[in-house]
């Protein structure tokens, strides 16, 4: 067995802390005690792999995938594209990227969402794709609306798309959210504000990308994602025992 190389330890300062009282639900769902830190093991260095057989033809097209192509969703048509890299700027190829989002009016197709903005009969709100050889992915979707949520008395989520990325090892697993350039609600959002480092929050804001938009069809936004890297083990004793 070859050593896959230990994962680079997470820089926890780049992430939100578990406890942030302005995001009220985190108050009772955050551990009080410190995390137990140690170097990664094969349990974190291996991870699930998903093949192209998993992905249907419309899986990355949220405008059409709910109706299987029969009718398009209502809203601002956008391409969301980007690249998945690791901390050493190496592309992460053939990795699964999943997204979910509200419709153009800010309503989620979920049994628990009771916001009175209507569902769009032609919009589901989930999609998935694999990155290509060079780590690129793309989704066609509609821009989600802002929506209110029960936190402080008048909190509204900015327009956002949830992202789930696997990487190649279980220890790289990441869920985050993509925001949209220029949205004034980002600065007022307690969930966005759980990120202490302003430059880290800025990196969740996708810029308008006119070069990738298609005239008379859709606008485009670019969202790159960085996962944990693996350290080289050149000078270490490799456990070759298997």
């Amino acid at each position: 067995m070859t050593d896959l190389g230990p994962l680079v330890p997470r820089n926890r300062a780049a992430h939100p802390p578990a406890y942030d009282p302005d995001y009220k639900t985190s108050v009772t769902r955050s551990p009080n005690l410190p995390l137990l830190s140690m170097e990664s093991t094969p349990s974190e260095e291996h991870g699930p792999r998903f093949g192209h057989g998993l992905i249907g033809a419309l899986d990355n097209n949220l405008i059409l995938n709910w109706t299987k192509g029969a009718a398009p969703a209502v809203g601002e048509r956008i391409l969301v594209h980007g690249r998945v890299l690791d901390e050493f700027a190496r592309p992460v190829p053939h990795t699964l990227v999943e997204i979910w989002q509200a419709n153009a009016g800010g309503r989620y197709r979920h049994v628990k969402d009771s916001y009175f903005a209507p569902l769009d009969a032609n919009f589901g709100g989930c999609g998935r794709t694999l990155t290509d050889e060079a780590g690129y992915y793309e989704f066609l979707t509609i821009r989600p609306g802002a929506y209110p949520w029960p936190n402080r008395a008048n909190d509204w989520r900015p327009m956002h798309i949830h992202f789930s990325i696997f990487g190649h090892s279980f220890g790289q697993r990441l869920i985050s959210q993509m925001y949209f350039e220029g949205d004034p609600l980002i600065a007022r959002c307690p969930i966005a504000a759980t990120i202490r480092d302003r430059s880290q929050l800025d990196r969740l804001v996708a810029p308008l990308d006119m070069a990738k938009s298609r005239p008379m069809d859709f606008l485009a936004y670019k969202f790159d994602i960085v996962l944990r890297g693996r350290r080289q083990t050149m000078f270490e004793n490799k456990p070759e025992g298997m």
């Binding site: 780049a14 050493f88 700027a89």
Partner: peptide, 22 residues
């Protein structure tokens, strides 16, 4: 340093099932 910083995490939210367990 020619290294990048990992993308910041955000909560999966209450509707995580839409994307992950539709």
């Amino acid at each position: 340093l020619d290294t990048l910083t990992e993308t910041a995490s955000q909560t999966a939210g209450p509707y995580v099932h839409i994307g992950c367990i539709p």
